[in-house]
Write a protein that binds this DNA or RNA. Structure first.
Length: 570
RNA sequence: GCCGAGAUAGCUCAGUGGUAGAGCAAUUGUUUUGUAAACAAUAGGCCGUGGGUCCAAGUCCCACUCUCGGCUCCA
């Protein structure tokens, strides 16, 4: 169901209530968005504690709102009516410039400049709404403009839907990786290194499993892994173009007598150095160089966000050197990898094409146009749905991003596949073609997970901490009924460890139900209980996460089952 | 970086300008447990950091650090 009209109407109601309570506030714009609406105000200083008061006023005002009355006006009349509000005047000027009709909508005693799209009977339909939060937002989304106060809210046509949505929000917050990660002892942050995660022993297991899977999949597809320096002389980044386009976002290491070294923020310059380190033949192409070195980016303090936005991270990176006529087939190969990876985790993703940013790009426009056309063709041929974000390309070329949503529905860029005609030229990279001439390769920059950090953040929320067997930091926990069974439990532990199953033995002096509960809360896939019945016959009682019934099996049978399960999943 | 909010025990949180609190977790003891919480005792604190106001500051004021929700920017 589409709630846009209802929610946009609610934005009007919000503005009316704010004006009633804060007469000096200046309403600007108030659209419906995914899951709700917002309205931006200038001259409004409020805190979250004021929201209930505004909500009460909204309920009060809406009673007199029988309809939204449309009034068409000319620009002079409009400018007269909104003469006190420079924001509305700016909007009116734009409408006039574009020869668009100017409409004003009246509801109750409130009028607003608006292009329309409302519910029919606000006093009847507009009952189930909630103001959610306040935030700062720049006028027209430009950080050079004044910052306004934005109030977010949501609205539904029934009380039930509103309650369900609010409950869902609360539930989603429980999946937040920023809460779950530290609680499950996967990672932590410390103020001594803002934005740079500490990976704890259990988190490192997940991290390494993901890297191992990545390594296995790519080795079989002809990728060759390299490791390259973290610190590089400034000159490397002058050559790549990053010095002009990215230096301000890089950490810099100063030396006494060798000038500045940049702390690696991207892997491509080093990959280019490797490509250029010997003569290359067309027979070597596509040459696929992969790496997962640590990257550091000096992100602005306000953008840091758990594992989703960090200052230190690793990408599952690769740079592929191809001839021009290999671009299309190589992209297809990469899209196949994307499909393979995301289906392993049952993750939903979408593609987005990022095109040339007129403010920040390298090379000539014709080359860009050609590259963008190539990517569009590839996307269309792939049959997958995609969106386009103009100006979102890297400075060296257009890109196809893989987008995903977190537990709260916020969209994040994960993988990206970028086409680069610029850097190979700047690094003077060449290969010998079949006809003996020297040609410049094209580089495809690509990551599938994106960054391991962001990807693990998404995985934590996707699984709610209940990782599939192959990723689970602890795959099985052994609970002896009493300490009389400790010896047998130890024997079970030894067997499982021998089979490379990540397993813990809990000898804590607590009743069994308490230990079961603890293991359940840690979301361990297998809880193995051993007592007299099991010890006598060489069995274990198995409680599998999510199953209602426990089953009892011989140790060897459990081990072979688990091992087969891990192999089958990846 | 900008707007707004927050920081008290390992975690979740109380705390009225006047002796620093609870539950869970931890430790020790008792209990010997059959699938989501046994009982008791003990220990645990520069109340984010630094200034200030006050007879007296966890509490009021200022600055800073970090975190969160957004904006902008990005994997």
């Amino acid at each position: 169901m589409n709630y846009d009209n209802l929610r946009h109407s609610c934005a009007h109601l919000l503005a009316a209530a704010v004006l009633d309570l804060y007469p000096k506030a200046l309403p600007t714009i108030g659209p419906a968005i995914d899951n709700g609406f917002y309205y931006d105000f200038d001259n409004l200083k409020i805190s979250g504690e004021d929201l209930p008061r505004i909500e009460t006023k909204m309920h009060e005002l809406v009673k007199s709102w029988s309809e939204f009355k449309k009034i068409e006006v000319n620009d002079q009349k409009a400018m007269q009516q909104f003469s006190h509000n420079s924001y509305k005047l700016e909007l009116i000027a734009d409408l006039t410039k574009n020869h668009e009709p100017i409409t004003i909508y009246q509801s109750g005693s409130f009028t607003d400049l608006c292009r329309g799209g409302h519910c029919e009977h606000p006093s009847k339909e507009l009952k189930h709404f909630r103001l959610l939060s306040i935030a700062g937002a720049y006028w027209r989304g430009n950080e050079k403009n004044k910052m306004l106060s934005r109030i977010y809210g949501t609205a539904f046509s029934t009380r039930k839907e509103l309650d369900e949505y609010l409950t869902m929000l609360e539930e989603s917050k429980k999946r937040d990786h920023k809460k779950l990660g530290p609680a499950l002892e996967l990672f932590m942050f410390h103020e001594t290194a803002p934005g740079m995660p500490y990976w704890l022993p259990k988190g490192v297991i997940i991290y390494n499993e993901l890297v191992n899977f990545w390594r296995r999949e790519h080795k079989s597809r002809g990728y060759q892994e390299i490791v390259s320096p973290i610190l590089n002389k400034k000159e490397l980044y002058i050559t790549s173009g990053h010095y002009d386009h990215y230096w301000s976002e890089m950490f810099v290491a100063k030396t006494d007598d060798e000038g500045e070294y940049g702390v690696k923020a991207m892997n491509c310059p080093n990959a280019h150095v490797v490509f250029g380190s010997k003569t290359r033949s067309y027979r070597d192409l596509p040459l696929r160089l992969s790496d997962t070195d640590s990257l550091h980016r000096y992100e602005r303090s306000g953008v840091l966000n758990g594992l989703f936005r960090v200052r230190e991270f690793r990408q599952d990176d690769a740079h592929i050197y191809v001839s021009k006529d290999q671009i299309k087939s190589e992209y297809k190969e990469v899209f196949d990898i994307v499909e393979r990876f995301y289906s392993v985790f049952n993750l939903k993703y979408s593609f987005r094409l990022g095109t040339r940013n007129p403010e920040n790009f390298m090379g000539n426009v014709a080359t860009w146009d050609k590259a963008e056309a190539t990517l569009k063709k590839i996307l269309e041929d792939s049959g997958k749905e995609y969106s386009i974000l103009d100006g979102d390309g890297a400075f060296y070329g257009p890109k196809v991003d893989i987008l995903m949503k977190d537990s709260l529905g916020r969209e994040w860029q994960m993988g990206t596949v970028q086409l680069d005609f610029q850097q190979p030229r700047r690094f003077k990279l060449q290969y010998t073609a079949a006809d003996g001439t020297q040609k410049t390769p094209v580089t495809i920059h690509r990551v599938i997970y994106g960054s391991l950090e962001r990807f693990i953040g998404i995985l934590i929320e996707h699984y709610g901490g209940a990782f599939p067997l192959w990723l689970a930091p602890v795959q099985a926990v052994i609970l002896p009924i009493s300490d009389k069974h400790a010896d047998y439990a130890q024997k079970v532990l030894d067997s499982l460890k021998l089979a490379n199953i990540r397993c813990e033995l809990v000898l804590r002096n607590e009743p069994l139900p308490a230990r079961v509960r603890d293991a359940e809360m840690q979301k361990i896939p297998y809880i193995l209980v051993v007592g007299n019945r099991e010890a006598e016959a060489g069995l274990i009682s198995i409680r599998h996460r999510g199953d209602k019934e426990n089953v009892t099996k011989p140790i060897a049978e459990f081990i072979s089952g688990v091992t087969a399960d891990i192999i089958a999943k990846v």
